[in-house]
C-alpha cells in the first residue's frame, strides 16, 4: 500500500503536474515566473540562510541527477572504497550545510516584520518540504551508509523503470522507511514545483555568458 503510494501514485502524479502545469504557467502568465527574492526587505538572516542552502543543495542535486542520467559512468568510479568514503563525507557535509541554510530560511520567516507581507502559504510549504528533504537525506546518508553506491543499484533503475512507464517496485520495495520518505519528499517537491517559486530553478541564467553585453531589440528587423 505505502509502496504503491510512494513509488507509483506519487511519481506519476508529480510527473503529470510538472509536465502539464509548467508549460501552462509559462504560456499563460510568465509575470509570476520569478525567484521572488526577499533580500530587499531582509538581508541579515538571509545571508546565512540562502548561501549555505544553495551552495549545499546545488552540488547534491546535481549528483543525484547525474547519477540517474549516467549511472554507468559512476559505478566503476565509486567501486574504490577510498573514493566512496570521500564522496560520502563530502556529501554529508554539503547536506548539513544545506539543512542549516533552509532551517535559517524557515525561522527567518517566523517573526519577520516586513517579510510577513511577502510570506504566503506556498513559501511555508516549500520551506517545510525542503527542510524535510534535507533532514531525511542527512539521516539516510549517516545511518544508511554508502548511499552513493546503492542509489545507483536501487533508486536509479527504479526511476528509469518509472520514466519508461513500467515501474519495477522490486528495486525499492525493501528499502528502509527513511529512504522511502526521502523519495516521497522528492516527488512532492517535483509536484509543487510548477505552482511555487521553485520554478526559478527550471531556468538557468547562463545566456549572458556568451551574449554581447548590451541586448538590442528591433521592432523592424
Amino acid at each position: 500500500m505505502l509502496n504503491n503510494l510512494i513509488f507509483i501514485a506519487l511519481p506519476y502524479a508529480a510527473l503529470a503536474l510538472v509536465l502539464l502545469v509548467t508549460p501552462y504557467r509559462f504560456l499563460s502568465n510568465r509575470l509570476t515566473w520569478s525567484a521572488y527574492s526577499t533580500q530587499f526587505l531582509e538581508r541579515k538572516f538571509l545571508f546565512w540562510g540562502i548561501n549555505p542552502w544553495h551552495y549545499g543543495i546545488i552540488p547534491i542535486l546535481t549528483a543525484h541527477i547525474l547519477g540517474f542520467a549516467f549511472p554507468g559512468l559512476f559505478k566503476p568510479f565509486l567501486g574504490n572504497q577510498q573514493t566512496l568514503l570521500l564522496v560520502e563525507s563530502f556529501g554529508l557535509g554539503l547536506g548539513l550545510f544545506a539543512l542549516m541554510g533552509c532551517l535559517i530560511l524557515l525561522l527567518r520567516r517566523v517573526n519577520s516584520g516586513m517579510l510577513s507581507r511577502v510570506t504566503y502559504g506556498s513559501d511555508w510549504l516549500v520551506l517545510l518540504l525542503l527542510v524535510f528533504q534535507a533532514g531525511t537525506g542527512i539521516y539516510v546518508s549517516y545511518f544508511l551508509r554508502w548511499g552513493t553506491q546503492w542509489y545507483l543499484h536501487s533508486a536509479v533503475p527504479y526511476l528509469w523503470s518509472v520514466v519508461s512507464f513500467n515501474p519495477q517496485l522490486g528495486y525499492v520495495a525493501e528499502l528502509p522507511l527513511a529512504v522511502k520518505l526521502h523519495a516521497a519528499g522528492a516527488f512532492l517537491i517535483v509536484a509543487v514545483l510548477p505552482f511555487t517559486k521553485l520554478v526559478h530553478l527550471l531556468y538557468l541564467p547562463v545566456d549572458f555568458l556568451k551574449d554581447p553585453p548590451i541586448p538590442y531589440r528591433w521592432r523592424t528587423k
Binding site: D211, P215, R217, R219, T220
Partner: peptide, 14 residues
C-alpha cells in the same frame, strides 16, 4: 542591461 543574467533588459533599436 549588461549586468542582467537573464537578458531581460534591452535597448530598443529604433
Amino acid at each position: 542591461a549588461a549586468s542582467c543574467p537573464s537578458r531581460a533588459i534591452y535597448k530598443r533599436g529604433e
